[in-house]
């Protein structure tokens, strides 16, 4: 019978590795969230803009990103993209934490494409008379969006955005493929250094689950506190 040794997880070197991994995972998720929200908003507005070139560009962006797995994005941004850059930029990049940077780029692009769709469907649920009335009052497209449409669509948009946050949290694990020392990577490191596979993966599972649970609770709290108003 396998001897499950909890003390490995509670203190010592392996404990430190795992905690460092968890902290880096959280950092990756937060950093991605900060960058992808404004980007998603921009893409959503472009997709609904009256200019057809902007619309086409936004559709191309969303479709090309969403139909390719995150792993392929990560591989491209880590192995592929730096090769195109000129030599000095490459050298500068490799002196720094190029793994983490590529994983954040891949995560931001991927997450923002999904979030843009959620924001767009929130905006589309607002009756189009709101836009027409705003425009008739003399506001421009962007001003109507900012002052009239977006504040109203917020209640509808936040819950799906929170569930995208949950996906983002789970997606950070894929960064291990390119060697970012996040939760899953550290769990594997602990496993190969100590052969304590069950302990290491239990820690990682518990960590992922507890943050996922927090995000789920946040979502249900929000939906209770700010329910969607029916017109």
């Amino acid at each position: 019978m396998y001897n499950f040794n909890l003390s490995v997880l509670l203190s010592g070197q392996y404990h430190d590795w795992l905690v460092a991994g968890l902290l880096l995972s959280i950092k990756l998720a937060l950093l991605t969230l900060i960058f992808s929200l404004p980007m998603a908003l921009l893409i959503a507005v472009l997709r609904l803009s009256p200019v057809s070139i902007f619309r086409a560009a936004a559709i191309a962006y969303v479709e090309s990103i969403r139909n390719v797995p995150l792993l392929a994005h990560m591989l491209f941004w880590y192995f592929g993209a730096p090769e195109i850059l000129p030599e000095p930029v490459k050298a500068w990049l490799y002196e720094r934490n190029v793994e983490a940077a590529s994983s954040v780029i891949a995560l931001v692009l991927y997450t923002s494409a999904y979030m843009a769709e959620d924001i767009r469907s929130g905006i589309r649920s607002i009756p189009k008379e709101q836009m027409e009335a705003g425009r008739a009052l003399g506001f421009g497209f962007l001003d109507t969006m900012r002052l009239v449409i977006l504040p109203q669509s917020l209640r509808l948009t936040i819950p799906p955005l929170i569930s995208q946050m949950l996906n983002l949290w789970k997606n950070t694990s894929i960064a291990m493929v390119i060697g970012v020392g996040e939760m899953m990577y550290q769990a594997q490191q602990v496993e190969s250094a100590s052969f304590r596979s069950y302990e290491a993966f239990s820690f990682a599972t518990a960590a992922y689950l507890s943050i996922s649970l927090l995000i789920t609770l946040l979502s249900s709290w929000y939906q209770q506190r700010y329910p969607v108003r029916s017109a």
């Binding site: 969403r66 139909n67 392929a72």
Partner: peptide, 30 residues
């Protein structure tokens, strides 16, 4: 994806093209 990685290791010099091809493959299917 793994096969693309193997091709990239064998060729050494063309990771950008290979991973673009990989992305394109998934895109066409999905």
């Amino acid at each position: 994806s793994f096969v693309a990685g193997q091709i990239s290791t064998q060729l050494m010099t063309k990771p950008a093209e290979i991973y673009l091809l990989l992305g394109l493959t998934y895109f066409v299917m999905c």
